[in-house]
Design a protein around this nucleic acid. Structure first.
Lengths: 124, 124
DNA sequence: ATAATAGTTACTTGATTGACTAACTAAACA
DNA sequence: TGTTTAGTTAGTCAATCAAGTAACTATTAT
């Protein structure tokens, strides 16, 4: 009960839901890509992802300076829920726009993107 | 997206989740039964149920002085989610205790139960 | 008709939560 | 080795939310 409640709470935030939707179709995303997608500070990204990891929905791996996150689609506990979610929000305007945005971000060089982020000054 | 978010938020509260779990196995419950189950004021019950109705999960019908609520299990939008939920929380201690409690409540005369509630003084 | 009562709505209060800034950690490069 | 940088943690603030009390509505019973 408590676990399910935590899981539902984790999904009850627009930004976290957008992350999950994005991860449903991209297999893996770097923190800085998520930051670019949601247009929030790195600190906020970090906290959102920490929560998604805590409830077991997301996994992370560190590669050099970057941290990559991926959805644990295989977990039987979540499988049905994630399929339901995908079917529910996969075609919404927000998610479609996000996926288009991710196409741009993904085709970018990571280092260049991070440099651009620094210049546009969202995080000192 | 907005609808899905509202739905998830509606389910992200312990009392509302307990109500949904209860309705999953009882087909119909009166407001005063829910009040007895959750041990909160009638006002709070009313607001929780209003929210569940607003997101489309619950239906209500008025019969005399009483209002009965039922889950809209048929709705294709919710069907998968509700089945997932039932499988996830159906066997938890909280829900099992709630169902046992509802057995008692259900076998009671409604008028007697409401009278007892008045006497125990939870709502003036 | 009047009193009683089940449920809703309005208002207030305390707790939770999400976002930001700033300080910190760890990895890479000069 | 020292600096830059990606990400995390701590602290603060504003907004949201759940619960209670009190006032109101509608239905039943005396």
């Amino acid at each position: 009960m408590k676990n399910t409640l935590s899981l539902l709470k984790a999904l009850s935030d627009k930004n976290r839901l957008r992350v999950v939707a994005a991860l449903l179709s991209t297999h893996e995303l770097c923190a800085c890509q998520i930051k670019e997608l949601l247009k929030i500070t790195g600190a906020s990204v970090s906290r959102h992802l920490a929560l998604l990891i805590q409830v077991g929905l997301v996994d992370s791996r560190k590669k050099g300076r970057w941290v990559y996150y991926r959805l644990r689609k295989d977990m039987p506990d979540f499988k049905v829920l994630l399929m339901w979610l995908e079917q529910k929000i996969g075609n919404t305007a927000v998610v479609k726009a996000d996926l288009a945005m991710l196409d741009d971000i993904g085709s970018c060089d990571m280092i260049e993107m991070c440099k651009k982020q620094r210049q546009s000054g969202s995080n000192p």
